[in-house]
């Protein structure tokens, strides 16, 4: 693993206690050029994670708090008529940053949600016929409250598919919570964080992740997983080819973070819950939104060929 990457992880672990796996997953998502969805109840450190990553990676950071009365222009920007020059001038919205924290994305109306998601997909924004490219790297961390809460618009499945990974932070364990309670103020801590790499370095790392070797035997395994989700009666519908690509990309990043230059089945298994849980719906859970541990079942159901 590269030294800066190692430092980033170490720094993040000092701020976010007891969540080493989630930190690495978030980082893997970033390295795989995907967007991250964090779903959990408020107050478990979603925003903190986003802040820490942005600071450590030296990325230009913007936070957008989604509300139900928000309009697409509030995110993308707006053209304003200037009387002096008798022209429209484009005022870029908060989306023009390298890292976006879209907080509580499911509070906004679908119209607003989709304006963000389209920008995520296309890496550019088109307003009034003019296309404005978004900066690179461009990374969105969206947070979402569990959907059964009142006053939310759950993201449709097609939109969920745009997020490479979905992770949950969960409550910290007792030891980590004690550390949290004893420790100094998180805001001060974040403010004191040093950036460990430049955006250019991050782009180079992303390039390296793409070079991680994938053997035919591993592809067999990935295909076996995809086939299983499609043929098994457990799921409402199987994983899409895009999900398969996401799985592979995330597994490559995971292998890279773990200092390997070839993907092994354990890498796939490590990222599979993050990749699959928001894309698969268990037949049992159609009405209750409680997420069972079904990605774990999925791992156990597919033998490694």
């Amino acid at each position: 693993m590269s030294k800066p990457l190692h430092n980033v992880i170490q720094q993040a672990e000092q701020v976010i206690l007891g969540k080493p796996h989630q930190i690495r997953l978030a980082l893997a998502c970033l390295l795989a050029r995907g967007h991250l969805l964090i779903e959990d109840v408020p107050g478990v450190g979603k925003t903190t994670l986003a802040h820490v990553l942005a600071h450590s990676l030296g990325l230009q950071f913007q936070r957008i708090q989604f509300t139900s009365d928000m309009l697409p222009a509030d995110i993308l920007g707006v053209s304003i008529y200037l009387r002096e020059s008798e022209k429209f001038k484009f005022h870029p919205g908060p989306i023009f940053a390298q890292m976006i924290l879209a907080d509580e994305i499911n509070r906004a109306t679908p119209k607003t949600q989709s304006s963000l998601l389209e920008a995520m997909e296309e890496q550019q924004v088109t307003i009034e016929g003019t296309t404005h490219p978004l900066p690179a790297p461009f990374f969105v961390i969206a947070t979402q409250n569990p959907t059964q809460q009142v006053g939310t618009f759950p993201l449709p499945e097609s939109q969920l598919d745009r997020f490479l990974l979905r992770i949950k932070l969960g409550y910290p364990d007792a030891q980590a919570e004690r550390g949290l309670l004893e420790g100094i103020n998180r805001h001060e801590l974040i403010a004191s964080l040093k950036s460990q790499m430049t955006a250019a370095e991050l782009l180079a790392l992303q390039q390296q992740v793409r070079q991680v070797f994938v053997s035919p035997a591993l592809l067999d395994y990935v295909q076996a997983i995809l086939r299983h989700t499609r043929s098994s009666a457990t799921y409402v519908r199987g994983l899409s080819p895009r999900a398969g690509l996401s799985l592979l990309a995330a597994a490559r990043a995971w292998a890279f973070i773990n200092g390997r230059n070839a993907v092994i089945p354990e890498d796939v298994q490590a990222v599979l819950p993050g990749v699959a849980s928001h894309r698969l719906q268990n037949v049992r859970d159609t009405h209750t939104a409680t997420e069972s541990d079904f990605p774990d079942e999925l791992i156990k159901a597919v033998p490694i060929p």
């Binding site: 089945p265 354990e266 298994q269 791992i299 156990k300 159901a301 597919v302 033998p303 490694i304």
Partner: peptide, 9 residues
């Protein structure tokens, strides 16, 4: 070794 268990695990 379980069928789904990777070599490293």
């Amino acid at each position: 070794r379980a069928e789904h268990e990777g070599a490293k695990d």
